[in-house]
Simulated scan of single mutants.
Amino acid sequence: MRTPVRVMVVEDDEDLRVAVTAELGSAGLVVDGAESIAAADTAFAREHYDCVVFDRMLPDGDAITYVHQRRQSGWAVPVLFLTARDSLADRVAGFDHGGDDYLVKPFAVAEMTARVLALCRRAGSGRPSVLRHADLEVDCARREVRRAGVLLTLSDKEFAVLECLIARPGEAIARTDLIEHCWDTQTDPMSNVVDVVVKRLRKKLREPELIHTVRGRGYRLAAS
């Protein structure tokens, strides 16, 4: 029997929480609600969730701080942030602190539902939690990377890009694809954010080089 897909909605605005919960429920998901980080944390201790929808500013703190701390301990549940904070710096902070998607209020509930369903599909794809290529090892559950057995320290964005590359080794992945999977949908596809992260990744991964540039197409992970 297939385990139902379960989602947590953490939102202190009761009307919005009820509306979001109802919409996700109508999409066939099992949905729980919480009004604070503390209440959500208690629920996480007793239940597994396939995705969590977090309002950023909650009565007991900014949710990105909580998510960042949980990510450091290996928490890998996909997270969608809902927030009225729409500056580029705020959106980048959401992703850098472990968010998988970011939706600015006011939003269309149908779009929010589509994003949650996409995150749930990604989480339940059946992909192994540890991905290996040459002497590189990426533990997706623990969010740890090792090269030749040496543990490396990566930012959340560096980890996300590397995870995309190692999931499709040898395949050229376009910058636009990397932006779609690792950044906000509002990120300019013509910006150089991918190139900046790849440059940092190459430096941290050291020689021999694993991330190769495919001219006119993007990047691929290949043996040296």
Score class of each variant (00 low, 15 high):
207 E>G: 05
175 R>F: 10
216 G>A: 09
214 V>G: 00
193 V>K: 07
180 E>M: 11
209 E>V: 12
199 K>G: 12
206 R>Y: 01
212 H>P: 02
188 D>P: 01
189 P>G: 07
216 G>M: 12
189 P>M: 05
198 V>N: 08
189 P>C: 02
203 K>D: 13
188 D>S: 01
213 T>M: 05
194 V>W: 02
212 H>C: 03
191 S>F: 05
213 T>F: 03
197 V>A: 04
194 V>K: 07
182 C>I: 11
179 I>M: 13
202 R>M: 15
193 V>F: 03
173 I>S: 01
200 R>Y: 05
174 A>W: 00
194 V>H: 07
204 K>Y: 12
219 Y>D: 02
180 E>K: 11
213 T>E: 11
197 V>W: 01
217 R>G: 06
189 P>R: 04
202 R>F: 09
172 A>Q: 08
212 H>V: 10
192 N>D: 15
192 N>Q: 12
172 A>R: 06
198 V>L: 14
210 L>H: 03
204 K>V: 12
172 A>D: 07
188 D>L: 02
175 R>Q: 15
190 M>G: 06
215 R>K: 14
174 A>H: 04
197 V>P: 08
172 A>T: 02
188 D>K: 00
190 M>W: 10
189 P>E: 00
178 L>T: 08
189 P>S: 09
194 V>S: 03
215 R>S: 13
186 Q>S: 14
207 E>Y: 11
207 E>R: 15
182 C>V: 06
218 G>L: 12
198 V>R: 08
181 H>S: 11
197 V>N: 04
193 V>W: 02
204 K>D: 05
191 S>W: 08
173 I>D: 04
178 L>G: 06
209 E>S: 11
176 T>I: 08
192 N>A: 12
192 N>M: 14
198 V>A: 10
184 D>S: 13
207 E>C: 03
203 K>G: 00
190 M>V: 13
194 V>Y: 00
183 W>D: 11
181 H>T: 11
212 H>S: 06
191 S>D: 09
191 S>H: 01
212 H>R: 15
201 L>A: 08
